[in-house]
Design a protein around this nucleic acid. Structure first.
Lengths: 245, 245
DNA sequence: TGTTGAATGTGTATATTATACACATTCAGT
DNA sequence: ACTGAATGTGTATAATATACACATTCAACA
């Protein structure tokens, strides 16, 4: 039995990772060679995305698609926006690419955007055919289709969330130092924070808890390690009373 | 020429209105009569929604669909979430309703959720065939399809936004009093605020500006009227520095 | 025209939170 | 034992949040 792939529906996933210095995004190479395989017609990158099956949940599709392209498992995805402009697939390269696979070009492909936050950029990526690599988010220039726009929207969403919810911990290893946490916020929000004030603020977050363990093997005073406690967070978040700004 | 309607894609719009007391939502009656027209097979309500055309933008679809059902014009919509569970249309009533129109039931209809905020609940609604009415949000029990879930998500989104951005002014008349503004926040967030402290907070919002006009025809001290200035807001919002909580 | 009912509009004291800012400590490596 | 590199800490001041009570102004009515 063959599952029916929906030609007018797809899912695109923005996979973020933090390497303790920069925010990165996982991109898939899109390289089209001439028939004789000797010259390259074009080469660029896209997000991890593909069409969904008729009998497939959106959330499951995100998991499947990323797994197909990267081998990554157990990622958590969150939907952030859906893109449905009529001109999403306008560039000649995009059309050539699609035709190459014999797909009919739907007059418009609606794509649901998901993002995922990974705690590092060293995980083993199983490249099944196409090259997949990490790129610093702020150096990404052009992408296939409207993926640049999707990436921007995901970033915007991430920044917004970061200022209102403790999503940042998903981008840090389970045990992290306060300097790492500070770097994360600085990198994503593009700001600079005072170390003492940052730590004072964090010390008020009861859900960031120090553990009986310190950094090891560093050529300086080893830092205290912390973990994020989702349980404590759920208990404390009860009511925020401020409106906006 | 006939435009092709996409059977597996739809847009559902959650239209909120505030009547100075309660948050309300605009719902469309869904009444199915027996063939002889004498008995009612079932009757319930749904959000304003319908399938989109092949050659139609998502945003335009929202505008068209709401206009078709209500005659309302010039609404501003914002997308908040997309629903694509495989069991969205599970209830027998939903299936009967769809079959009635001779539509094929797609195995899954993906629907993009939009919401709109109206400054009052008195606008002239042109009912084209189906009855459309305002209902207090917190008294809505069951809805067609998964529309109850969609409404909840829209509400959640609205509350979130309300605490972080000045979207509430869209639910108030152009000229409003501070008491009205306070009531709005209390109604939507389900909280109670101290009048003096609320006003102190608002007085720090440079974009809420008093005008040379007072309430008229009220049997008590007439209140100062205010307007929201988007221009001033854009200038002031520069940087918010808090993370979360 | 004066009395009533109803909502408006205002200030202060106290507690909490935000900001600005500099130096001793601890480790690995040599 | 010395160096380089990052950690970890406190205080004074400013800004913001909270708790709380009463005189004012209008329309309506007697």
């Amino acid at each position: 039995m063959t599952r029916k792939l929906l030609t007018n529906l797809s899912v695109d996933c923005v996979i973020f990772g933090f390497d303790m210095d920069q925010l990165k995004v996982l991109l898939v190479e899109r390289k089209l060679k001439s028939d004789d395989g000797k010259s390259i017609i074009f080469s660029d990158h896209s997000l991890t995305g593909y069409h969904i099956y008729e009998d497939e949940d959106l959330d499951s599709a995100a998991i499947r698609i990323v797994n197909d392209l990267t081998g990554l498992e157990n990622l958590k995805f969150e939907q952030f926006y859906t893109f449905g402009s009529l001109d999403r697939i306008a560039h000649p390269n995009d059309q050539i690419w699609i035709e190459q696979f014999g797909d009919v070009i739907s007059s418009r492909v609606l794509t649901v955007g998901y993002y995922s936050l990974l705690p590092n950029t060293n995980m083993n990526i199983i490249q099944k055919g196409r090259k997949v690599n990490w790129f610093p988010v702020d150096q990404v220039k052009e992408l296939a289709y409207d993926h640049k726009e999707i990436l921007e929207k995901a970033l915007e969403h991430l920044r917004y969330k970061l200022q209102n919810e403790p999503v940042g911990f998903n981008l840090l290893p389970e045990k992290f130092t306060l300097s790492q946490m500070q770097k994360l916020y600085e990198a994503i929000l593009g700001a600079k924070y005072d170390k003492r004030n940052f730590r004072k603020k964090v010390s008020q977050m009861s859900y960031v808890v120090p553990i009986k363990e310190k950094q090891q093997g560093v050529a300086h005073k080893p830092a205290q390690l912390y973990i994020f406690s989702p349980e404590v967070y759920e208990k404390t978040r009860k009511e925020r009373n401020h409106f906006f700004i």
